[in-house]
Design a binder for these strands. Structure first.
Lengths: 148, 148
DNA sequence: CCATATTCCTACTATTCCCATAGGAATTTA
DNA sequence: TAAATTCCTATGGGAATAGTAGGAATATGG
């Protein structure tokens, strides 16, 4: 389990960029962060639907955070990109299995979920964005893009 | 991130079965746990290569745990099936990125990794196997198999 | 010694998910 | 009205996942 998808990593970098710049267009985020423009557009749109960013269309438009970076928890970002954390189906759908309460595997997975959620709630975007260095590190990118 | 693959869930169920039965053949584990026989064979072989189970070939053979269930940590099982935990590339390969020490995203992912590893080290197979009910729950299985 | 039960090995396939790419429509502003 | 921008939909290649299939190698019990 548990490779973080490129999409989520891009989202975090794009949001850190917005936190530091105060707002920017997809094209400029793309070239600053070395992420394919078209792919990034979809990511930003997804973040918008989740209420994490707001956008202005047309010339001079772009994206901004919808609230202070310190109020955006890392778990909000992960949830926006990937939906709720669910290591196995039955953790949030008890109808999958009739044994709910007494099922030890389920309790085990539930504990794992709690552990991860706890961590992701303990860090916010401001923590990441205030650092002097927010690099390309940790993207899983294999090659350079043209960002055209 | 972080759906647990069926393979890992099967491995855990198979091992819990072995812990409770004291040893069994792939065919019997398969029918008891409702896992496709041929697929299970591959899983058990992988667990053998990692030293978690031992096997006896030929008639009357089968698989057994290589050590007491209480000495098999859940992280051993996960590592056997999926390799080391690595949410993003750079967490264990600092050459991916030149910023290592000061890269905030990297520190963030590293913290997540520690959190998950800590949990997986805190639970052992005995904890799961000693429970009265170890069911099919949490497999992501969509349909029944024939287990022929 | 031989039928049978078992692990072990290799190759194949179907499906799903991931990571984009592509083209253009809609919108806003200078 | 041209340019910059978001927004929408469709397509495709590659990798991983989940499983199938067939049979070789090995050991045991009768």
């Amino acid at each position: 389990m548990f490779q973080v998808p490129a999409k989520t990593q891009y989202a975090i970098r794009a949001l850190a960029h917005l936190a530091r710049s105060g707002g920017d267009s997809a094209a400029r985020i793309s070239s600053a962060q070395n992420i394919s423009v078209k792919y990034l557009e979809g990511i930003l749109n997804q973040l918008k639907l989740s209420g994490i960013v707001v956008s202005d269309r047309g010339r001079g438009g772009g994206y901004r955070l919808s609230r202070p970076a310190s109020e955006i928890l890392m778990i909000d970002i992960v949830a926006a990109m990937e939906g709720d954390l669910r290591p196995v189906e039955c953790v949030d759908d008890s109808t999958v299995c009739s044994m709910e309460a007494f099922c030890m595997p389920r309790r085990f997975w539930l504990g794992l979920k709690d552990s991860v959620e706890g961590y992701l709630k303990s860090v916010n975007l401001g923590d990441l964005a205030e650092e002097p260095l927010v690099t390309f590190c940790g993207t899983g990118q294999k090659k350079e893009h043209d960002n055209v």
